[in-house]
Design a protein around this nucleic acid. Structure first.
Lengths: 232, 232
DNA sequence: GTCAAGGAAATTGTCGACAATCGCCAAACC
DNA sequence: GGTTTGGCGATTGTCGACAATTTCCTTGAC
């Protein structure tokens, strides 16, 4: 997500702490479905399996709690969050609110570097839409586009909030097992948003975003409802 | 903030963990200015002073990080967050976005119990506006009104997000040392919002909220800028 | 058979100790 | 004199152990 190639000079080297590594492992396990809904996330068990102490596991779990991937119950521990279709709809509504605000600021303040970044990201989405890429990669490319919108807005709050809920979005998409009809089409549905952004057409950009997210919401929520009714 | 009098039934008894108690102590210390901007929040020192181990202090600090009260730097520890006037403006913009969305849903889905709650909260604000109440109490009553708006909206995401940023708002208001001209007037400025809500007049409610928050923002940000220029 | 009480096992909550890392300051070098 | 290097003190990072709490199973009464 972040390790940009810094052209010249050395890379910051993996100064990533144990907590982050554990957090990433856990989140990946949850998003890819290795850990199932409502499952207990025992500190001791995870710690033993990873060969570390409980302390970093605990902190990592707290981090995931902020992303909405796990729930913490006092004296009971962490559980993989189970999301209802209702919560899912709420989540998409929330995303719409945040991203709409971000788009507005983005246009008002000027795109700046975001212009090339967004263009490149759609290209990236097209690239990973081809064969040889798994769905997780495609979903992440999708989320990165929306993330860039939030990142480009002058207000860091939008990005911070988006990052908190992005994981949960990824999770649900992975759960339903497909995104739209195919990844290629998914990439194209972002084009109208970008076009409007490039034209600095605020009403159209907001409208395109609204349409994009609401379509996604309806699709995801419907698929999800089906799963709720008859869980395999 | 939370310990509501629950009318009938027993109180949950102080089943509040050590972490929450430490977190509340620290946040109060920060908001009331006992801990100053940028000051280091040493785990060991705090733990020694409170007579507890470092573990709960650490967790409490992580909690405060989510509220934006402290910053965490890897291998360097926690520091009381110093907020710039720029961030402050961003914060208010963000609040406007969230609360506007909440108001929209509140009106669309019907007020329900929020109606009486909001009315009571304005009364509460008037009550604590009188003599014998300190500013922290008045600020908290203010924030609680806005919190109720988010709580009443059907989408829990709005409330969760609001709670994350509420502390930072309180902090800055406490920092500038006064809110509006006086607490009495502050209470009254909420009336137009409530009136519009009770009439189910969405455009007017949104407009009243926008006006209210932008006035607050301008006042707070300006005061804050003055402090930045010549810090006493 | 159902339900309540009791207790054992497992899990979280907290703790104190040790290892890793950082910031500072003095010493050495150009 | 200015810069780099080395080490010292302090702080965070991680750990294993113990206390408190919950969960689940057993036991017993009705």
């Amino acid at each position: 997500m972040d390790p940009k190639q810094d052209s010249d000079g050395f890379q910051p080297l993996d100064r990533e702490g144990l907590v982050q590594r554990v957090a990433r492992l856990l989140s990946k396990a949850i998003v890819t479905g290795q850990l199932s809904q409502g499952e207990r996330l025992s500190e001791s068990v995870v710690a033993r399996q990873l060969g570390v102490s409980r302390a970093p596991v605990r902190e990592a779990a707290r981090l995931l709690e902020n992303s909405g991937l796990v729930t913490y119950l006092p004296n009971r521990g962490f559980f993989v969050r189970s999301i209802s279709s209702r919560e899912l709809a709420d989540l998409y509504e929330f995303r719409l609110v945040i991203e709409t605000a971000a788009v507005r600021r983005l246009i008002r303040d000027g795109l700046g570097e975001s212009e090339t970044r967004l263009v490149q990201q759609i290209e990236e989405m097209r690239r990973v839409a081809g064969p040889g890429f798994d769905m997780l990669t495609q979903v992440e490319a999708d989320m990165e586009f929306h993330r860039l919108i939030c990142a480009g807005s002058g207000n860091p709050k939008y990005l911070a909030t988006f990052d908190q809920i992005a994981m949960a979005s990824e999770l649900t998409i992975m759960m339903i097992g497909r995104l739209y009809d195919d990844a290629q089409r998914l990439a194209e549905t972002h084009q109208p948003i970008l076009d409007a952004l490039l034209r600095h057409d605020e009403p159209e950009a907001v409208e395109a975003l609204r349409y994009h997210i609401e379509v996604a919401r309806d699709l995801v929520v419907e698929q999800f409802r089906n799963m709720e009714e008859k869980p395999d």
